[in-house]
């Protein structure tokens, strides 16, 4: 029985630097295997859709424009993503990858969370086609 057992820690801390991290002023380097934003490499994609089928959060949509010509667009909802990497595990072609350097994903504008991957012309055609659908909730709010 002692009156106090932690006095050494307490006194020692007076001369030690604080353990508090000064984020965002000082940034710690992210570990190599950190799961950050998902990236899609369209070259190997076969449009099988396993990634979106297995996604527990409905964060992925593979939009097939033309299967033969390999025209796919990936619609990725960052706000829904839970960073479980099941899509990376499910993809047999290895098209998907979670980048460890893009992890500060907070944003004020909800539109930044809708990310389209693919050929620019294809994305433009999809956005044109879906403008009517998406305009409606925006107008309501």
């Amino acid at each position: 029985m002692k009156l106090t057992t932690m006095w050494k820690d307490a006194l020692g801390s007076l001369i030690k630097p604080a353990a508090t991290q000064r984020y965002p002023f000082v940034r710690r380097e992210a570990p190599e295997h950190l799961r950050g934003q998902l990236h899609w490499d369209p070259s190997a994609c076969t449009g099988c859709g396993l990634c979106s089928k297995d996604c527990p959060a409905d964060a992925l949509e593979v939009i097939v424009l033309d299967k033969k010509a390999k025209r796919f667009v990936m619609h990725y909802h960052v706000d829904r993503c839970t960073f479980c990497a099941q899509c990376v595990a499910s993809c047999r072609q290895g098209c998907l990858d979670m980048e460890s350097d893009e992890w500060e994903l907070a944003a004020l504008d909800p539109r930044t969370f809708d990310i389209y991957y693919g050929n620019e012309a294809d994305i433009a055609s999809i956005l044109d086609g879906s403008t009517e659908e998406e305009a409606e909730p925006a107008a309501a709010g």
Binding site: P31, H33, C84, Q86
Partner: peptide
């Protein structure tokens, strides 16, 4: 927590498992 982040990629909700094995 840092160790777990380093191994699995997430600090919590590590999602280490897949059915039939592990990811990391």
């Amino acid at each position: 927590l840092n160790l777990l982040e380093d191994i699995t990629g997430n600090r919590i909700n590590y999602s280490t498992n897949v059915l039939g094995g592990v990811k990391c």
